[in-house]
Design a protein around this nucleic acid. Sequence first.
DNA 1: ACACTTACTAGAATCCGTTCTAACTTCGGT
DNA 2: ACCGAAGTTAGAACGGATTCTAGTAAGTGT
Lengths: 205, 205
Amino acid sequence: MEAVQDLPPGTAPGLRTKSQLQRRRRILQAAAALASRGGVEAMQMRTVAERAGVALGTLYRYFPSKMDLVVAVVGEELDMLESSIARRPPAAATPDGRAVDVLMRATRGLMREPELADALIRALILADVELPFGDRMAGLLVRVAGLSDGRATEEQAVLAASLGAVWVQELLEMLRGRRTYEDIQRRIEIAASRLLAEFPASRVE
Amino acid sequence: MEAVQDLPPGTAPGLRTKSQLQRRRRILQAAAALASRGGVEAMQMRTVAERAGVALGTLYRYFPSKMDLVVAVVGEELDMLESSIARRPPAAATPDGRAVDVLMRATRGLMREPELADALIRALILADVELPFGDRMAGLLVRVAGLSDGRATEEQAVLAASLGAVWVQELLEMLRGRRTYEDIQRRIEIAASRLLAEFPASRVE
DNA sequence: ACACTTACTAGAATCCGTTCTAACTTCGGT
DNA sequence: ACCGAAGTTAGAACGGATTCTAGTAAGTGT
């Protein structure tokens, strides 16, 4: 479990023909479908390969490990979240409000496919992922909170990353059946109000 | 990967004879020793069983899965942390200072056995652990921060849990080689000052 | 002491990720 | 149209966690 993008990876260089792009697409699709019901364990490499109509060896050529496959699937989910946000940006007045908005939107998205979400999140935390989920989410939060107006302090980055960490942890708890959507919302709001509120101005308390 | 405490578990009921207690102890010791160098992969069930001088089947009777074994090992580490804190309580003046103190003490402890720490933390995140590492650490933080003087608000519990989540995430980053001890300290301080500072009084800024 | 339930042991067997092999295709250059 | 490199395939093979089996010891109640 190591590599990130691979030899014939996604949008990146290396994909020669259209059939390779399509193969990759079929693989990702099969993987997501399998994980959607049954979670990680249902997403077995043999099964993915079979369902995608490629040989096991080929699957491993595209994704050197199961983890790489998971990371790729997550990447696609994040793409969707980002474009969703671009389409309809969070409207809240405060930075922490906007951050909560984005996180809860992501939460709802993940809740639609709990098995998939579970598989993906756990796998990601485990992974030696080079393209960090956390960093990407933190960057998104910084942008969305509008904290980076000009100066993107280290402190702000840390705070955004912290909120991301809290969110991930809450998601895990939800997937373990120990939080409801409402729990998460409340808890994220509490954490966000502390972490992201701009103290001089808006205090949410 | 599910169960938590098992049939013949630790201090809990179920352990009939002394030899069983000793067996359990030998297993935990062997597991920790193996994980200390070589990490998760070195801690193979066959090897643990062999080194503990029990049959593979017996190991599985005591710990139904590798995860359960890991959880138990972590439990022991937490015991040690708690008694260390009881021995020498954090002295900082502010709640967030005390929390940082405890977290960094735990960090140093884990850093002494990076392979072990890596194995343990990852496994914990993965586990459907019923005896939540997070909750236990959060409780510890609440106590240590002295936030619960009389009233242990839900908000306080959430904030402590949040700080715990941030810490775990930072640890993971460290284990991936992306944070130094100093990084963690700085980042935890930033998060703690926001999450735990008592706003009316001490502002750390 | 005796019968019996429960724990333990050695080892085979199963499952799944990953690797390896040998033969077959596809593609780009000529 | 032909050649060699790179991509693909079916399937065997390997490694480690987990499960299963049959038989042997240990602890308990009478």
